[in-house]
Simulated assay, not measured.
Amino acid sequence: MGYRGSYGRVSAYLREKRTSPRPVTAQPPAPRVVTRWILSRPETLTEIEQIRLKAVLANCPELDALTDHVRSFAQMLTERQGERLPQWLDAVRQDDLPSLHTLAAGIDRDRDAVIAGLTLPWSSGVVEGHVNRIKMLKRQMFGRAGFALLRKRVLLAE
């Protein structure tokens, strides 16, 4: 009569757990997900994603400031507003975001080139793509054959 067996113990354990529910807490989004939300155009996010992003930004003022800077830079880039770069750099320096300070220092070293890249319609992207392709072929061929074979591969790899 006193023997309940393992089934009885499991049953009692489950009954106890069912009667004492734990509070449900929402799991925070993964950093990769938050990064995607920040880097996406706001109008492309679903309503739920926008609400969750607002909640994350409300709890972290540094992330909120970072989001403003990232979206402002993206607008400069897509709308070719390079003349706004000096104001953007000043705004970045005013916030306490060390990683953006490093980016701003790098941009400052080539300020004229960055402004031209953000303003002018011309791009060297096609040329850079070809250079990248040729370098890749050269790395693949390293130590295997001479210049004649490398030349053939470059000419035939279109």
Score class of each variant (00 low, 15 high):
M1R: 15
Y3C: 15
G5I: 12
R9M: 15
S11L: 13
S11A: 15
A12G: 13
Y13R: 15
L14A: 15
R15W: 10
K17T: 14
R18W: 15
R18I: 14
T19W: 11
P21Q: 14
P21K: 13
P23A: 14
T25A: 13
A26M: 09
Q27F: 13
Q27V: 15
P28S: 08
A30Y: 08
P31V: 08
V33M: 12
V34T: 09
V34F: 05
V34A: 05
I38W: 04
S40C: 07
S40R: 08
R41E: 12
P42C: 06
E43N: 07
T46C: 01
I48N: 02
E49F: 00
Q50F: 01
I51P: 00
I51H: 03
A55K: 00
A55W: 00
V56T: 01
V56W: 00
L57A: 05
L57M: 05
A58E: 01
A58M: 00
C60E: 08
E62V: 02
L63A: 04
L63N: 02
D64C: 08
D64P: 00
D64S: 12
A65C: 06
L66W: 06
T67E: 07
T67I: 06
T67L: 05
R71L: 04
F73G: 04
M76P: 00
L77C: 11
T78L: 07
T78A: 06
R80S: 06
R84D: 07
P86S: 09
Q87N: 13
D90Y: 11
R93H: 10
R93D: 13
Q94P: 08
Q94D: 12
D95F: 05
D96R: 11
L97S: 10
P98R: 08
P98F: 08
P98G: 03
S99D: 13
L100E: 04
H101Y: 04
D108S: 14
A113G: 03
V114W: 07
I115F: 05
I115G: 06
A116R: 10
A116P: 01
L118V: 01
T119W: 06
L120I: 02
S124A: 10
V126S: 04
V127D: 02
V127P: 02
G129W: 00
N132T: 05
R133I: 04
I134T: 05
L137S: 03
R139A: 09
R139I: 04
R139V: 07
Q140Y: 07
A145K: 13
G146W: 11
F147S: 14
A148K: 15
A148R: 14
L150R: 12
V154Y: 09
A157C: 15
E158D: 15
